[in-house]
Write a protein that binds this DNA or RNA. Sequence first.
RNA 1: GGUCCGAUAGCUCAGUCGGUAGAGCAAAUGGCUUUUAACCAUUGGGUCCCAGGUUCGAGUCCUGGUCGGAUCACCA
Length: 547
Amino acid sequence: MHANFDLIELLPMTLPTFDEIVIPNDQTEARREHLARFVELVGNAYPSKFERSALSGNEDTISNLKAFAPVADAAKEMADVRATLEPGARPPAEIKDRLNETLKTLGTVRIAGRIATPIRGNFVHLTDGREKLQIYAKKGQFTLARNDGEADREAESAWEAWQILDHGDLVGVEGYLFVTNTGEVSVHVERLYFLSKALSPMPDKMHGIEDAEIKQRQRYLDLIASSLKVADADDGLSTRETFEVRAKAISSLRRFLEDHGYIEVETPMLTAKATGAAAKPFKTHHNALDIDLYARIAPELYLKRLLVGGFEKVYELNRNFRNEGISYKHNPEFTMLEFYCAYMDVNGMMDFCEEMIRQSVLNATGGLTVKYERNVIDFGKFRRIRMRDAVGNKAAEHNDAELLEVFENEVEHTLVEPTFIIDYPKSISPLSKASPTNPQIAERFELFINGMEVANGFSELNDPREQYERFRDQAEARERGDDEAMVLDEDYVRALSYGMPPAAGIGIGIDRLVMLLTNKHSIRDVILFPHMRPERRQEESEEGETE
RNA sequence: GGUCCGAUAGCUCAGUCGGUAGAGCAAAUGGCUUUUAACCAUUGGGUCCCAGGUUCGAGUCCUGGUCGGAUCACCA
């Protein structure tokens, strides 16, 4: 196939070469040459650190510096002045000079970031991934710091370095803040540091990365693209902003739980039995023990063992794994928040859940209403509807399984506003306590928003004998071919026999909640690295036709 | 797994009836050097996803495959 095929055969394995991974072309050739020249100029093109200044009171990231009052005020004043000018006209020199006086008294600033625009003349923008700040370099007015401890390169070499910087390189600069003739707050570079090389070219500055496959496989590139985009003809959150909202929502949930006395725990992800939910597991093998293990489908039974042990309020926020279909709302691994509270029942849990989600929406988005697709979702008030009422007048004609099916097919997708569906049939709720007034009904709810199930909670069944019988019913269903029926966990029954306090618990699908908060229509848009088929190189796909 | 759609330069995309592979951005070279996505000029850059077929001739038509997207089914 190739001339050097025999040579490749001699290698212990067919390791791809560097050039097969970072494919050379006219773009990358230039960058490789520039890198080689930087090694000559600064000694080490990949230094270990760069210390940023702290004029803003915190480390001067570009975002922090731009938010720092004197900088923000100067930018604001210039923007106001510019708004009154003809396009292309320059702001009055008096204002500019006054602002420059103020900015200069702040002293020397040291910032770092990625070169966000192609070098054109003396100006370039740096980005910290989030905000951009312009820097200005004038031949003869700055030096190039060496990364090997030697004295700086002087003007001539510094200017050469400036000219061979590539779009995407990481640099640090030392200098002073000033306002340009056109009124943009910038850093006048006095010392330039080369910090790291972009050997691969940057995405299009206007369009970014459009290919959904590349966005997901190479999320780093998607994130870079969103930080480099020039015009925010913004319809929707950038990738960066989406994951910032996700982080805020999660930290708000954690804070809410901790403020209410919950402690975070971690329970096994690899377990001998996959139970605690109705789902198919991933199977793996432990070599030393020579036993099969399963990736957990839910932490539920472990968390309730902790209630038995005396932890009254516990939560776990982590991944579950289910070996099932992939869809816009299903990823094989997904993030679930589960928590349990002793001495609380299903109604208390609904109240608590409602308030917690409301806080999270507020903290993540700044408001209580969220635009999603064509709907406006109001998190101000959650409805509560009995399942039989939701299904309507046909409810009486159906048994439990049929009722659930009618609900899922005809009602679920209509539940746009946050809605707790309550009074689930007991037969489909094997871990849930039965209602004291109606033994066919479980003290259980599910929360639906925009037609998606977001949470599932109930009064926890704590009678060990009844729990055993529920498991036994599940085992019979399994015998009949229901391969998602729940598996008996003997130790869990044993744990309950020591006495578990009355308690309520809930699981909240974090990815789905984040979809709602970010107006994303695919779970893959709110998971940084969603599951994808492995990427195969050409040679492999030609040889590996053994399916 | 079913159905529909897609894959062309580093990126974003055109490509007519089957007849020499195109643009913008990005890159290189030179000019400019307080500019605001796009300054001026010149130049280079292609496995048209892969394999096969039809044809004098395939980016284009046909078959199979790979990967992805949308949607349906199951699941949270």
